[in-house]
């Protein structure tokens, strides 16, 4: 599935849903109905909007966001300097690994930046070794030495 790369015109309702639901989704028996009530809409309307926003990739996901480190795994940012002529092919090789959770193209000599997420610390080294073997390009790991702040909430 291609990721949406451009802004969309969001209705006020969709904005309200996104702003209200970037965390704190309840663990009640009927959570959608409960959230819908606070937004002043019906459960069916909320489910309909969520499905539509997932289909159109306004939302990439609806559900839990995991911190794999808390269960013994690792997240590691890594970068590669990929020759432009090989960019598409290397991108396909890198993205094929399930360990690659996100991947961004950036304007720099290091033009490919991806996050590896693995269940065990050793899984990172294995994934890096595999990418290096398949692409014959060096992978530069940037593990976080210290986390000062993380709060990825953006106002819609």
């Amino acid at each position: 599935m291609t990721e949406r790369q451009a802004p969309v015109a969001l209705s006020d309702l969709d904005r309200n849903i996104i702003n209200a639901l970037q965390g704190g989704f309840p663990l009640t028996d009927t959570p959608y109905a409960d959230v819908a009530a606070t937004l002043g809409i019906s459960e069916a309307a909320l489910l309909d909007r969520l499905k539509e926003m997932l289909e159109t990739r306004v939302l990439t996901r609806f559900g839990p966001m995991f911190q794999v480190e808390r269960m013994g795994g690792r997240f590691v940012l890594a970068a590669m300097a990929v020759p432009e002529s090989r960019f598409e092919a290397v991108n396909a090789q890198v993205n094929a690994l399930p360990e690659v959770a996100h991947n961004y193209r950036r304007d720099h000599a290091f033009n490919m930046w991806f996050v590896l997420a693995t269940e065990t610390p050793g899984g990172i080294d294995a994934a890096i070794a595999r990418i290096e073997a398949e692409t014959e390009l060096p992978v530069y790991p940037f593990p976080k030495l210290k986390e000062y702040f993380v709060e990825m909430k953006l106002k819609a």
Partner: peptide, 10 residues
């Protein structure tokens, strides 16, 4: 737990 928006779309 909740919505993970695509920030480009926003």
């Amino acid at each position: 737990m909740g919505a993970v928006p695509n920030h480009y779309a926003l």
